[in-house]
Protein backbone atom coordinates (compact mmCIF):
# COMPACT_ATOMS: atom_id res chain seq x y z
CA UNK A 1 0.00 0.00 0.00
CA UNK A 2 1.14 3.52 -0.68
CA UNK A 3 2.74 5.26 2.27
CA UNK A 4 0.57 8.33 1.72
CA UNK A 5 -2.31 6.37 3.28
CA UNK A 6 -0.62 7.15 6.61
CA UNK A 7 -1.08 10.87 5.97
CA UNK A 8 -4.68 10.31 4.92
CA UNK A 9 -5.34 8.38 8.16
CA UNK A 10 -3.67 11.19 10.07
CA UNK A 11 -5.91 13.84 8.53
CA UNK A 12 -9.05 11.73 8.88
CA UNK A 13 -8.33 11.09 12.55
CA UNK A 14 -7.86 14.83 13.25
CA UNK A 15 -11.07 15.67 11.34
CA UNK A 16 -13.03 12.90 13.06
CA UNK A 17 -11.75 13.88 16.51
CA UNK A 18 -12.67 17.52 15.88
CA UNK A 19 -16.18 16.66 14.68
CA UNK A 20 -16.79 14.30 17.58
CA UNK A 21 -15.39 16.85 20.04
CA UNK A 22 -17.74 19.52 18.68
CA UNK A 23 -20.68 17.15 18.97
CA UNK A 24 -19.72 16.01 22.48
CA UNK A 25 -19.14 19.53 23.81
CA UNK A 26 -22.30 20.95 22.28
CA UNK A 27 -24.33 19.97 25.33
CA UNK A 28 -21.62 20.66 27.92
CA UNK A 29 -22.11 23.75 30.05
CA UNK A 30 -19.21 24.69 32.33
CA UNK A 31 -18.27 27.73 34.43
CA UNK A 32 -16.68 29.50 31.46
CA UNK A 33 -19.93 29.17 29.50
CA UNK A 34 -21.94 30.48 32.43
CA UNK A 35 -19.66 33.49 32.68
CA UNK A 36 -19.88 34.10 28.94
CA UNK A 37 -23.68 34.02 29.07
CA UNK A 38 -23.77 36.29 32.09
CA UNK A 39 -21.44 38.93 30.65
CA UNK A 40 -22.49 39.00 27.01
CA UNK A 41 -24.93 41.85 27.66
CA UNK A 42 -22.21 44.04 29.17
CA UNK A 43 -19.99 44.10 26.10
CA UNK A 44 -21.93 46.77 24.13
CA UNK A 45 -21.47 49.15 27.08
CA UNK A 46 -17.69 48.95 27.01
CA UNK A 47 -15.96 51.23 24.51
CA UNK A 48 -12.95 50.00 22.57
CA UNK A 49 -9.75 50.36 24.54
CA UNK A 50 -11.47 50.69 27.92
CA UNK A 51 -9.55 49.48 30.97
CA UNK A 52 -11.67 47.61 33.46
CA UNK A 53 -11.45 47.09 37.15
CA UNK A 54 -12.85 43.88 38.56
CA UNK A 55 -14.38 43.93 42.02
CA UNK A 56 -14.65 40.32 43.03
CA UNK A 57 -16.72 40.25 46.23
CA UNK A 58 -15.99 37.08 48.17
CA UNK A 59 -15.97 35.14 44.95
CA UNK A 60 -13.64 32.44 43.70
CA UNK A 61 -10.24 33.56 42.33
CA UNK A 62 -11.15 31.93 39.05
CA UNK A 63 -13.77 34.62 38.44
CA UNK A 64 -11.00 37.01 37.45
CA UNK A 65 -9.65 34.51 34.89
CA UNK A 66 -13.08 33.77 33.46
CA UNK A 67 -14.17 37.40 33.31
CA UNK A 68 -10.99 38.75 31.70
CA UNK A 69 -11.15 35.90 29.16
CA UNK A 70 -14.57 37.15 28.09
CA UNK A 71 -13.43 40.76 27.80
CA UNK A 72 -10.28 40.35 25.70
CA UNK A 73 -8.74 42.53 24.30
CA UNK A 74 -9.68 44.88 27.15
CA UNK A 75 -7.34 45.04 30.10
CA UNK A 76 -8.95 43.97 33.35
CA UNK A 77 -7.26 44.38 36.73
CA UNK A 78 -8.45 43.34 40.17
CA UNK A 79 -5.66 45.13 42.03
CA UNK A 80 -5.88 48.71 40.87
CA UNK A 81 -8.66 51.15 41.70
CA UNK A 82 -7.66 53.74 39.13
CA UNK A 83 -10.03 52.68 36.37
CA UNK A 84 -13.39 54.31 36.03
CA UNK A 85 -15.29 51.35 34.62
CA UNK A 86 -15.87 48.67 37.23
CA UNK A 87 -17.27 45.18 36.87
CA UNK A 88 -18.56 43.89 40.19
CA UNK A 89 -19.25 40.21 40.67
CA UNK A 90 -20.92 39.30 43.92
CA UNK A 91 -22.23 35.92 45.11
CA UNK A 92 -25.98 35.95 45.62
CA UNK A 93 -25.66 33.85 48.75
CA UNK A 94 -23.62 36.59 50.38
CA UNK A 95 -26.38 39.09 49.81
CA UNK A 96 -29.91 39.34 50.98
CA UNK A 97 -31.73 38.03 47.90
CA UNK A 98 -34.52 40.46 48.53
CA UNK A 99 -32.29 43.55 48.73
CA UNK A 100 -32.96 46.33 46.26
CA UNK A 101 -30.37 46.93 43.56
CA UNK A 102 -29.43 50.29 45.10
CA UNK A 103 -28.65 48.62 48.41
CA UNK A 104 -26.57 45.93 46.74
CA UNK A 105 -24.63 48.56 44.81
CA UNK A 106 -23.90 50.43 48.01
CA UNK A 107 -22.90 47.24 49.78
CA UNK A 108 -20.47 46.37 46.99
CA UNK A 109 -18.69 49.73 47.00
CA UNK A 110 -20.54 51.24 44.07
CA UNK A 111 -22.20 54.10 45.96
CA UNK A 112 -22.74 57.16 43.74
CA UNK A 113 -21.70 55.22 40.67
CA UNK A 114 -23.67 55.19 37.48
CA UNK A 115 -25.08 51.77 36.75
CA UNK A 116 -24.46 50.90 33.08
CA UNK A 117 -25.66 47.32 33.11
CA UNK A 118 -26.66 44.59 35.53
CA UNK A 119 -27.38 40.91 35.39
CA UNK A 120 -27.69 37.92 37.65
CA UNK A 121 -27.57 34.17 37.27
CA UNK A 122 -28.08 31.37 39.76
CA UNK A 123 -24.81 32.21 41.57
CA UNK A 124 -23.81 35.84 41.09
CA UNK A 125 -24.92 39.43 40.63
CA UNK A 126 -23.03 41.29 37.91
CA UNK A 127 -22.86 45.10 37.82
CA UNK A 128 -21.06 47.31 35.35
CA UNK A 129 -20.66 50.80 36.76
CA UNK A 130 -18.79 54.00 36.03
CA UNK A 131 -18.37 57.38 37.71
CA UNK A 132 -19.82 59.58 34.99
Amino acid sequence: MKSRYILIILLVSIAAATLLFGKKMHGVDDNMDKMERALTGAKPFIAAGTNLQLRNIKGKNELHFWARYQFTPHYMSYKTTEYDTVLTICPILAMMPIMAVDSILKATGNRDKKLLWQNKDEEYYYFLTCTH
Binding site: M1, K2, S3, Y5, I6, L10, V12, S13, K24
Partner: peptide
Protein backbone atom coordinates in the same frame (compact mmCIF):
# COMPACT_ATOMS: atom_id res chain seq x y z
CA UNK B 1 7.06 4.41 -1.19
CA UNK B 2 5.10 1.29 -0.43
CA UNK B 3 4.21 0.01 3.01
CA UNK B 4 2.98 -3.45 4.06
CA UNK B 5 -0.80 -3.47 4.48
CA UNK B 6 -0.36 -4.70 8.06
CA UNK B 7 1.54 -1.49 8.87
CA UNK B 8 -1.18 0.74 7.43
CA UNK B 9 -3.91 -1.25 9.16
CA UNK B 10 -2.01 -1.19 12.46
CA UNK B 11 -1.50 2.56 12.22
CA UNK B 12 -5.18 3.07 11.40
CA UNK B 13 -6.27 1.06 14.44
CA UNK B 14 -3.84 2.96 16.68
CA UNK B 15 -5.15 6.27 15.28
CA UNK B 16 -8.74 5.21 16.06
CA UNK B 17 -7.72 4.23 19.61
CA UNK B 18 -5.89 7.53 20.02
CA UNK B 19 -8.95 9.53 18.92
CA UNK B 20 -11.22 7.57 21.26
CA UNK B 21 -8.91 8.05 24.25
CA UNK B 22 -8.22 11.71 23.46
CA UNK B 23 -11.93 12.50 23.35
CA UNK B 24 -12.32 10.78 26.69
CA UNK B 25 -9.89 13.14 28.43
CA UNK B 26 -10.64 16.38 26.53
CA UNK B 27 -12.31 19.31 28.29
CA UNK B 28 -14.44 21.89 26.54
Amino acid sequence: QQLPWQAVLGFGLCAALLVKNALGVAEK
